[in-house]
């Protein structure tokens, strides 16, 4: 039950984009059409879901004091995490290319871009600072990815429509995207009323 609890919490209440601003760069750059946004969103769910448990294992069994080397290696955390992410993205890219050329074509250039998406590294760092266990970190990865997916699809749909509206020229494009994201953030805040603990107690 804790799994669902964490999933709902990270996907809706503590949405990675709208309340922590993680992955804003690609969120703003790739949200001009719903189709590409969909591809990137799927790729983020994929990579977050995979890297989160791996980074958890690395942090727990290699870097911590009672891990494999028996000493506190946490100062290597950044380097190892980013290396894992880069390696996993590369691996996922090769696997997807081999087994599902259709999905590979759909994701296109977005897979390699994900390496520098702050949401992935940020997720791993949040996981460490919140001291999640393994199942929670899987839920956090999937939920965070899903929340990111929802946010980018929503903004892409709004931006597709707003192209036909009469926005002041200086606000067109980027400026409007910022203000829309702010409004979406306020809308998502209404989900704070959800009590994930209620699901867990059932």
């Amino acid at each position: 039950m804790e799994f669902i609890n964490t999933f709902i919490k990270t996907a809706f209440i503590e949405n990675l984009v709208l309340s922590y601003f993680l992955g804003m760069c690609s969120y703003l750059a790739v949200s001009k059409s719903v189709k590409t946004a969909f591809g990137l969103g799927m790729a983020v769910i994929f990579v977050l879901g995979i890297t989160m448990p791996i980074n958890w294992l690395i942090n727990e069994y290699l870097l911590s004091e009672n891990g494999l080397f028996g000493m506190d290696l946490t100062f290597l955390r950044f380097i190892l995490f980013i290396a894992t992410i880069a390696a996993m993205v590369q691996l996922v890219e090769m696997v997807v290319e081999k087994f599902s050329p259709a999905l590979y074509a759909a994701l296109g250039i977005f897979l390699p871009l994900i390496t520098v998406n702050c949401a992935i590294l940020g997720g791993s760092l949040f996981m460490v600072s919140r001291e999640y266990n393994l199942s929670n970190s899987i839920a956090f990865g999937l939920g965070g990815g899903f929340g990111w997916f929802l946010a980018i699809i929503a903004i892409a749909a709004i931006r597709e429509k707003i192209r036909y509206s009469n926005v002041p020229p200086a606000l067109r494009g980027l400026g409007m995207a910022f203000i829309l994201t702010g409004l979406m953030g306020i809308a998502f805040m209404s989900l704070m009323g959800i009590d994930p603990a209620a699901f867990a107690s059932k």
Binding site: A170, I179, T181, G182, G185
Partner: peptide
Amino acid sequence: VLPAAAMFIIGILIWIQRSRNT
């Protein structure tokens, strides 16, 4: 204090900058 305010402020900054620098 909410995260959304940062969005609005940056949006408005972009608006000001682009209307001065067409």
